[in-house]
């Protein structure tokens, strides 16, 4: 018998997912002391990753990247170029791993499918999946019907993963039930006609949640509602991903796993631009939830410019001298 993610939620909330019951669970979560959280994140950031560990980390980072373009000015050509980069990040070294996924707007999914061709597939198998942002990304300001249609369209076009945004306004005004229902509804919309389902990443937009306590609560709400991943940010709001926020979400995922046995993924997105920063995230994952989380179905970087910095570092490691931006491709 398969255990549905709602079963986990039922085990924690009870049979009735009323807002009152949800709040009872969420308000029972331990508080977060911001100073202590940030101090712990800073401490993790002081790990010194050298030589063989660094080489491993750099390849791992590449394989965890959701290579992203989310601009109004995106074109099919841009998406093709992004796909090319994702498939062969460094033409001078074909041993360079591929990225985990391309992350695009829903209307670009078809172009991404075309561009990836036979390399479109499960990143755990070394292929590249397609993630689409949906639900009136990034603001989430539209009707439920449009959000669900947005999701269905992207899935139908071939998206393997849906990056949805939560209704921050509802969350902040205390309508947690509404947020919960919406995530569940989007999750339903991820189901394909053959019964399989696109993976759902729930973007909390932590930069708008104001407090760490809210981030923890939103993380749990998203997991209760069936999110496969919790994601920090759209990248359109500052601050986007930060190490303390990601640490906190990893702690939530760890605690959720301890209580339900289910592994939920984490995706920091936006603002991670250097391999030095990305390595801090790898350290944080390893020392918080364990190294087993460093796999594409449990951890991703949502990033665009990160890849090139990582490639420069990779070249430095393999050649022994510093490389320059002219030696990696801009797209």
């Amino acid at each position: 018998m398969t255990i549905l993610s709602t079963d986990h939620a039922h085990s924690l909330v009870g049979t009735d997912f009323s807002e009152k019951n949800l709040k009872a669970v969420l308000n029972g979560l331990p508080g977060v002391d911001a100073v202590g959280l940030e101090a712990r994140a800073a401490d993790l950031g002081t790990r010194s990753i050298k030589t063989s560990s660094k080489a491993w980390a750099i390849d791992k980072i590449i394989s965890l990247i959701d290579l992203t373009t989310l601009e109004g000015a995106d074109t099919p050509g841009k998406v093709h170029s992004l796909a090319a980069k994702g498939m062969l990040p460094d033409p001078s070294d074909t041993a360079t791993p591929r990225v985990a996924a391309l992350c695009v707007y829903g209307d670009m999914v078809g172009h991404a499918v075309d561009a990836l061709g036979t390399l479109h597939g499960d990143p755990d198998a070394g292929l590249i999946s397609i993630a689409a942002v949906a639900t009136a990304f990034p603001s989430g300001r539209s009707s439920r019907a449009i959000k669900l249609a947005d999701t269905r369209d992207a899935v139908a076009a071939g998206a393997d993963e849906i990056d949805m945004v939560i209704d921050r306004s509802a969350f902040l005004s205390g309508r947690l039930g509404l947020v919960f229902e919406e995530i569940q509804a989007v999750k339903q919309s991820c189901v394909r006609t053959d019964g399989t389902s696109a993976h759902l990443k729930v973007i909390l937009e932590t930069g708008e949640l104001n407090t760490y306590d809210n981030v923890r609560m939103a993380s749990w709400l998203a997991m209760l509602a069936g999110g496969d991943f919790i994601k920090t940010s759209t990248g359109k709001v500052a601050p986007a991903a930060t190490l303390p926020v990601t640490l906190l979400m990893l702690e939530a995922v760890r605690d959720w796993h301890a209580q339900t046995g289910q592994k939920v993924g984490v995706k920091p997105a936006g603002g991670i631009r250097t391999s030095k920063d990305a390595i801090k995230y790898l350290v944080t994952v390893s020392e918080t939830v364990g190294e087993e989380w460093l796999t594409p179905h449990l951890f991703r970087f949502g990033a665009s410019s990160l890849l090139n910095d990582v490639l420069l570092q990779r070249q430095k490691l393999s050649t022994g001298h510093y490389s320059g931006p002219d030696y990696v491709t801009i797209d």
Binding site: D33, A34, V35, G36, N210, T211, Y212
Partner: peptide
Amino acid sequence: TKTVWHTKSLI
């Protein structure tokens, strides 16, 4: 003299 420290943060 007793000195008490407490963390201080808005968030």
